[in-house]
Computed example of a mutant assay.
Amino acid sequence: RRTEPVGGVYTLDLETERTYVLASLRLAQELFGYPGRASALVVRLAPGADAAAVRKAVAEAAGDGFRVRTRDELRASFYRIMTYEKWGIFFIALLVLIIASFSVVGALAMLIVEKRDDISTLRALGADTGLVRAVFRTEGFLICGLGAVAGMTLGVAATLAQQYFGLIEIPAETFLTKSYPVEFRPTDLAVVAASFAAVAALLSNITVRSMIKTDRL
C-alpha cells in the first residue's frame, strides 16, 4: 500500500477526467512496473507542419512495434461530432436560403411584369423568346450574385474574427476551449458558393420560363 499526496485537481471534458490522472514519470513507472521505460510519447509539431506527413515518417522510423496516431485519430469521436454539426448547420442554412430566395422570385416576377412594354419592343426588333428569357435570367443572376457576395463577405469576416479573436465564448468550463471553435476553409466556401449558385440558377430559370412562355408575355 502506498499513499501519494494530491497536488491539485484539473477540470477538462468529462471523458478526460474519467480516464486520465496526471503524475510524474517516475511515479507512473513505479506503479505500472515499467522502470526506465514509457508506454507512449507525445510529439508537438511546429506551426504549419503537416500532421499526416509527420505521422507517416515517425511510423516508418519507429517500425511495426509502435502505433503512431495523430490528434484527430486520438479524438475521432469528438471531431466526428463536430463534422456532423457542421454539415447539419449547412443543410439548415441551405433550407433557409431556399425559403429566402422566394423573395428573389417575387422581385424577378414583378420586374418582368413591369418591363412588358420593353419586352414588346425587343420582340419588334427581332428578339425571340430565348433571348428575352436570357435577359431576365441574367437579371436574376445579378440580384442573387450581389446578395451572395455581400453575404459571403460578411460570413468570411465573422468566421475569421471568431477564429483569431474568439468573440463568441462557450458558457461552460468543462470544454478544452473557451471560445466556439471555427476554422475558415476555402473548400467549404466553395461548396456554399456552388450551392447558392445552383439554387439561384434553378429559381431564376423556373421563374423566367413560367412568366415568359410564348411570344407573348
Rank of each mutant, 00 (worst) to 15 (best):
R1A: 11
R2K: 08
R2S: 12
P5T: 06
G8S: 13
G8R: 11
D13A: 04
D13S: 06
L14S: 10
E17H: 01
R18K: 14
L22Q: 03
A23T: 07
S24T: 13
L25K: 08
R26G: 13
Y34N: 11
Y34R: 14
S39G: 15
A40K: 05
A40E: 12
L41S: 07
V42N: 08
L45R: 04
P47V: 00
D50M: 10
V54H: 09
V54C: 12
A59F: 09
E60Q: 14
A62V: 09
D64R: 14
G65D: 11
V68E: 09
R71D: 10
L74P: 00
F78K: 11
Y79C: 06
T83L: 14
E85W: 11
K86D: 04
F90Y: 14
F91Y: 11
A93K: 04
L97E: 00
S101A: 07
S101P: 00
A107P: 01
I112E: 08
I112C: 10
V113R: 15
K115W: 00
K115C: 02
K115T: 00
R116P: 00
R116G: 04
D117N: 06
S120T: 01
L122W: 13
D128V: 03
G130D: 05
T138Q: 12
L146D: 03
A148F: 13
M152G: 01
T153Q: 04
L154S: 09
V156C: 11
A158H: 08
A158I: 05
A161F: 13
Y164H: 15
L167P: 03
I168M: 14
E169V: 05
I170V: 15
V182I: 14
F184L: 15
P186E: 00
V192S: 08
F196W: 06
L202V: 08
L202P: 01
S204I: 02
I206E: 02
V208A: 13
R209L: 08
R209Y: 07
T214G: 09
R216L: 08
L217T: 02
